[in-house]
Structure formats: C-alpha cells, structure tokens
C-alpha cells in the first residue's frame, strides 16, 4: 500500500553518495512500495543529514528477507567486532601496571 509511515532513527556517521562522503544524522526507515527495486514492498532506508537540510540522501531498497538477513549480519558483525576490539583483561592489567612503574622522566631516560 501507499503510506507515509516512516520510522526515524537518530544516527551518527557518514555515508558515501554520488558526490562523495557526507555527514549523516538521520535514517528514515519504511516498508512500502520502493521506487526502483522490483518488489511490491521493500524495506527502504534513506540516510540523510537533516542538519544540512536533508536534500541529499544515500538510499537502499531491500527485499523483506534480505533486510532481516542484514539485521542479523549487523548484529553478528557488531558482536564479533566487539570481541575482536576488546582489550584482553590480562593486557589491560599489564597496561595498568606499566603506568605505575615510573614517571615520564624515568621512562624518557630509557631512550
């Protein structure tokens, strides 16, 4: 159906469009008739910068199935990224100990 239902998400980041990178602050998300994708309905996301007037966007139109798969992959990527980027606990303790070893002057004497 044609509707004007939109979920607005406040986001922070950048998106790359035909004119290069732009700062984005909003994702307009809707599930309705797409403009281009050959589906009756598509999960559409328009990434825009409302702070800059919202005149440009980076857009995607996804099938329902691929949108759901993408949600899973985003969550999986965040989980594995969190695990990979986390500072191991023993390393963290080591860093803490190192910082207690000496003053900046004492460390500088080593070089």
């Amino acid at each position: 159906m044609c509707s004007y239902i939109v979920e607005k998400a406040a986001i922070a980041g950048s998106a790359k469009g035909p004119r290069g990178w732009m700062r984005i602050d909003t994702a307009n998300v809707y599930y309705d008739h797409p403009y281009d994708a050959p589906f009756d309905h598509a999960l559409c996301v328009d990434f825009v910068s409302e702070a800059d007037g919202g005149m440009e966007r980076v857009a995607v139109e996804l099938s329902r199935e691929s949108a759901l798969a993408l949600i899973e992959k985003i969550q999986a990527a965040l989980a594995s990224g969190d695990a990979a980027h986390a500072v191991p606990s023993d390393e963290a303790e080591s860093c803490e100990r190192s910082s207690l070893v000496g003053s900046q002057t004492e460390v500088a004497r080593l070089f």
Binding site: Y4, Y35, G54, E56
Partner: peptide, 17 residues
C-alpha cells in the same frame, strides 16, 4: 526542491506526505 523524482519523493515521505 531540486533532485531526481525518487529523491524528492523520499523527502516528501520523510515530511509526512
């Protein structure tokens, strides 16, 4: 405003139609 019909349509949707 300016833009391709799909971009303008997206702005209209975001503004509630």
């Amino acid at each position: 405003g300016p833009g391709t019909p799909d971009d303008v349509g997206a702005r209209v949707r975001a503004a509630g139609g």
